[in-house]
Design a protein around this nucleic acid. Sequence first.
DNA 1: CATGGGATTGACT
DNA 2: GTCAATCCCATGC
Length: 195
Amino acid sequence: MRRGFYARPVLEVARGLLGCLVSHGACAGRIVETEAYHECEPACHAWAGRTRRSAPLFGLPGRAYVYRSYGIHALLNAVVEPEGVGAAVLIRALEPVEGLELMRERRGRTALLELCSGPGKLSQALGIELAHNGGDLLDGPVRIHQPAAAAGPVAVSERIGISKAVELPWRFSVAGSPFVSRPRPRALSVQPFGA
DNA sequence: CATGGGATTGACT
DNA sequence: GTCAATCCCATGC
């Protein structure tokens, strides 16, 4: 994956990441759900401008933005748009591909559908932590690489778990995938192709 | 320096 | 359906 892939409008990258592989060590999974966040809307951590927490969002596209949510979970984002623009794509769910036994161990669960079907779950399954914040997704311990094939039809819906700008249709998922997070996306529209 | 609020999950009613 | 766990950091006094 080239850095130019990330230096594009956040909605394009959010769709384009569907089908891509996230890997960390022996574990890997295929992205089936993403959400877009951009400094122009108040649900984005970059909304309030550049702070210590949000600084990575304004940095080099293609790097990781990892932050702690609800005091418990580490959530993985890909920084996007040109340097200086605060925006990121939240990776919300993966289809587990490699390292299933290690994922089961880390998750304390065996069901395939419970390993990576949520942003907190996938970080736990892959061993992604706050220490990975700022790491390069092109050349770091946590990487994202090209899909083997196009992702297929993309379902577009509203983002979840937020209280501001809830109406924006900025949640993207592989239509019909059983590996997406809850609540299941209620598709406002379906677009023909992912990557 | 004190406070409050989450881009969630799992357990429980 | 409800609810608590738990920590980082932005905000405000």
